[in-house]
């Protein structure tokens, strides 16, 4: 997306955060801090040289903590999500008629629901990220805007437990209907599904009752 379009978008929705711009600013701040440290070190080296002392240890830049975005990425509040999406879809300047996917990231303290929108005609794309609290993972459904979101939202509900309000048929899609928990959450612990446990204990009771060996191979002596 061109900078002019991004500016136009941000002007229309002032509450939307431009995450890529925030990343650039953060990177610049980190670079500046590093440059200041280097200058300080250089001065220390020169002082030590003048005083005839051993030079201080060379500096090692620590790993960057900046979170990188590749491409235009925006943080949207969930109250505003539907308005933003409708505007991006219907505004001919943006024309985001194609929804690539809906998914979510579990950041342990919060979820981030991710939307990737694309415009086949204008050939640009955008990522929208909606932070939602862990104890209340609800977002409005975008199935009214893009029909294709239906299965993607069901998948995000199934695997991460995000509740899409207004979805016509929100139920599990990949896991079986009686599955407990949401597997892609970071705190998910695998447990054998309940029906499997029941089948196995029923079988064990039968074996105990008949004295039959496991797999039915003759009686237990």
């Amino acid at each position: 997306m061109s900078p002019e379009r991004i500016a136009q978008f941000l002007e229309r929705f002032p509450r939307v955060r431009d995450l890529a711009a925030e990343q650039r600013a953060e990177q610049a701040r980190e670079d500046e801090e590093w440059a200041a440290k280097q200058r300080e070190w250089q001065e220390a080296v020169e002082r030590a040289k003048a005083e005839g002392k051993p030079a201080p240890r060379p500096l090692k830049r620590e790993e960057s903590r900046v979170y990188h975005y590749h491409g235009p990425t925006f943080g949207v509040e969930r109250e505003e999500l539907l308005d933003v999406c409708r505007w991006l879809r219907d505004n001919p300047e943006f024309d985001m008629s194609y929804l690539s996917f809906v998914s979510a990231i579990d950041w342990r303290d919060r979820f981030e629901v991710v939307y990737h929108l694309r415009s086949p005609a204008r050939r640009h794309s955008v990522v929208l990220k909606v932070p939602v609290p862990r104890d209340d993972p609800r977002v409005p459904s975008v199935t009214g805007l893009w029909r294709g979101a239906e299965w993607h939202e069901r998948e995000a509900y199934d695997l991460l437990g995000i509740v899409f309000e207004g979805h016509p048929d929100l139920r599990r899609i990949l896991m079986s209907a009686d599955w407990k928990g949401h597997p892609l959450r970071k705190d998910y612990v695998y447990e054998d599904p309940q029906w499997l446990v029941e089948v196995a204990s029923q079988r064990q009771r039968e074996i105990a009752a008949t004295g039959e060996d496991w797999e039915g191979r003759g009686s237990r002596s």
Partner: peptide, 22 residues
């Protein structure tokens, strides 16, 4: 990999195959 996320699209035999990597 450095902290961050990327979405890459390719044209597979079936269509628009993408990976969103965090």
């Amino acid at each position: 990999a450095p902290r961050g996320e990327v979405y890459v699209r390719t044209e597979s035999a079936r269509g628009d195959l993408g990976i969103f990597l965090v």
